[in-house]
Design a protein around this nucleic acid. Structure first.
Length: 342
DNA sequence: CGACTTTGACCCGCGC
DNA sequence: GCGCGGGTCAAAGTCG
């Protein structure tokens, strides 16, 4: 969970600085003991570690203060006691801040679970609109646009013609709201919070070969986006017109699974990863991948009944358990699918 | 040691 | 037939 980790990092940082403060106190005590005996060696002894710039800064300040005090003929012990008091007060302040942050995290987590439970309730009550509720989850972070277009130009489509179907799922996240969501709400929706653009740009299903192709565009920093499935790279080519190499992956979740995917960076925007899936899985999808497939299937289901089997035939007759699972994977699963590094 | 990645070679379809 | 480009194979290397 990104939000958690960011908060944790913050806390860890604070903890580190506390340790530094501890070291500082110890260093000052040691320095104080020796100060009367060997004032000239003091500078070398105080400098213990240079890793923490802030600690160094403090040390330098302390050294300067100590020098000034020795010049001012005041007793070193009094100075050290004052310093200790200041540092202890600082420590207390930081501990207090740490506690406040911890409480904020607890509140955030509680809100998150409450929302998740409410969402599951809503979904159970309103089964037919499942896909709509599913998609609206993303709008917790911001507004979003859902578009579904059917390129069914001619109802009298010949059998040997390739059925074409185009749909687009886009998320648009307001940067300000995104920050708010990350810092205050902590929804745990990694992908939404990170403002990752995800678009299913096209699907094509060939009835003759039963081969399906789905192209997904997603903003992703990693070499490939984590979609819940296990893939094995079997080739890489530099395609004409795009200097970015195209990588070829094969699904290794089940032996003999015919599904392949091509991954290539978008020429216009290198941060966008274009992933093209081809074929149909011959096995149940892992939870993370199920969420993605169900999203596409739910969108496709409102357009036509046949594409349900696209990506995974096991979604054609989703069990109640799977349906329930979707409501949960919608938050956790998506982070698995479109999450960056993940 | 097995799973995975890398990378050059090979195959195949397509246009000229 | 030839060249080109896209897709796949498979040996070698890497990693945990």
């Amino acid at each position: 969970m990104k939000i958690m980790s960011s908060k944790r990092e913050r806390i860890m940082h604070i903890d580190l600085s506390l340790e530094t403060a501890d070291d500082e106190v110890r260093a000052l005590e040691e320095a104080g003991d020796r100060e009367e005996e060997e004032e000239e060696k003091e500078e070398g002894e105080v400098a213990i570690s240079n890793e923490d710039k802030e600690a160094n800064k403090h040390r330098e300040e302390n050294q300067t203060e100590e020098k000034e005090q020795s010049y001012g003929k005041t007793t070193a012990e009094d100075v050290i006691k004052d310093e200790l008091c200041v540092l202890q007060a600082e420590m207390e302040r930081m501990k207090e801040e740490n506690r406040t942050l911890q409480e904020a995290i607890d509140r955030t987590m509680k809100d998150y679970y409450d929302l998740q439970m409410k969402f599951a309730d809503i979904q159970q009550e309103d089964q037919p609109k499942e896909h709509q509720v599913f998609l609206s989850l993303g709008s917790q972070s911001s507004g979003e646009i859902k578009q579904a277009k059917v390129a069914d130009r001619d109802s009298g489509l010949a059998d040997d013609e390739e059925l074409c179907l185009s749909l687009s799922l886009q998320t648009h996240v307001d940067p300000h709201q995104r920050d708010d969501a990350r810092e205050e709400k902590g929804k745990g929706l990694k992908s939404w919070a990170a403002g990752e653009l995800t678009t299913i740009t096209s699907q094509s299903i060939n009835p003759a070969t039963r081969k399906t192709r789905v192209s997904v565009r997603a903003r992703c920093q990693g070499p490939t986006m984590n979609d819940g499935c296990q893939w094995r790279k079997y080739g890489q080519k530099v395609a004409k017109g795009n200097p970015c190499p195209r990588a070829y992956y094969r699904c290794t979740v089940a032996p003999g699974c015919p599904v392949r995917k091509q991954v290539q960076r978008c020429l216009e925007d290198m941060s966008i990863l274009v992933t093209t899936y081809e074929g149909t899985h011959n096995h149940p999808l892992p939870v993370g991948a199920t969420a993605m497939a169900s999203t596409a299937a739910a969108s496709a289901n409102s357009l036509s009944s046949s594409p349900l089997s696209y990506l995974n035939p096991y979604l054609a007759n989703p069990s109640p358990q799977l349906s329930t699972m979707r409501s949960f994977t919608s938050s956790a699963g998506y982070s698995g699918i479109f999450g960056g590094r993940q």
